[in-house]
């Protein structure tokens, strides 16, 4: 069942075209990896899909869920690094989208927040201050918040950026488990190997979509061979 579809989406950022004619579909249970170099419009596309940026043209359609039922894990901002907030406060704020006009959290919201803290293995940090946590822990807190907001679909913007390799692989393991449990993921990824490993679909962006389809199809393309040989050249230069 398709839950999200984008057709012919174009976006501009600061007056310059950042995304041109991109399209993709997400089926329930998918893990779509969006890959591409810096400045290839990955984040811009995601923001457009989420309604944070205005589309120049094209359509984004949600099937069977509302916009407020998408979980989003944005890139961390400078403001957050030194923010005095307890982990519980941050995670609970993910429940706001289901509050409607009522401004306070219900008992159900609190239970949901605890459940997601538990699920991500950070229940013992609930009273800790967000600013005292390590990068990996902060990212888990933001994921827990996104899970509070998400019904079926989670959008992740470079979820492991800035994490050390151990924390990054732990985080990917969490995502894999969420995906197995039925959460649909759309994930911007910087490193090709994990994008291929965890994603069943690939969208390769370079302003325009260069490839969109199943991961196993992507492995057969010349694009993929160019990417990997470039990586090998880089590696051999390093040596």
């Amino acid at each position: 069942m398709t839950i999200l579809s984008c057709r012919n989406v174009s976006l501009s950022y600061d007056g310059k075209t950042a995304v041109e004619d991109a399209g993709f579909e997400v089926v329930r249970g998918d893990c779509l990896s969006i890959i591409g170099e810096n400045g290839s419009g990955k984040s811009t596309l995601m923001k457009g899909v989420l309604g944070l940026l205005k589309l120049d043209s094209g359509q984004v359609e949600l099937h069977g869920s509302r916009r407020t039922e998408i979980g989003y894990l944005p890139q961390q901002t400078v403001v957050q690094k030194d923010f005095p907030a307890s982990v519980r406060e941050v995670v609970l704020s993910g429940c706001l989208n289901r509050r409607g006009f009522f401004p306070f959290y219900s008992r159900g919201d609190r239970a949901r927040a605890e459940e997601n803290l538990e699920r991500l293995g950070i229940a013992d940090l609930a009273r800790a201050s967000y600013r005292d946590l390590s990068g990996g822990q902060q990212q888990r807190v933001l994921l827990a918040r996104a899970l509070c907001a998400a019904k079926t679909l989670l959008m992740l913007d470079e979820p492991v950026a800035g994490l050390d390799p151990v924390a990054a692989s732990g985080f990917y393991a969490l995502l894999e488990k969420l995906n197995r449990d039925g959460m649909t993921l759309v994930m911007i990824s910087h490193d090709l190997s994990s994008a291929l490993r965890y994603g069943n679909k690939i969208l390769h962006m370079s302003k325009k979509p260069l490839f969109y389809g199943e991961t196993r199809e992507y492995l057969k393309t010349s694009l993929y061979r160019r990417m990997t040989s470039a990586a090998e050249v880089n590696e051999s230069e390093w040596r």
Binding site: K47, L50, G51, L52, R66, R67, T68, I70, G71, Y72, P74, T77, S93, G94, L96, N97, R145, A146, A149, M155
Partner: peptide, 8 residues
């Protein structure tokens, strides 16, 4: 961004 993305 999160607040806006989740419909606020």
């Amino acid at each position: 961004s999160f607040a806006k993305a989740t419909g606020m």
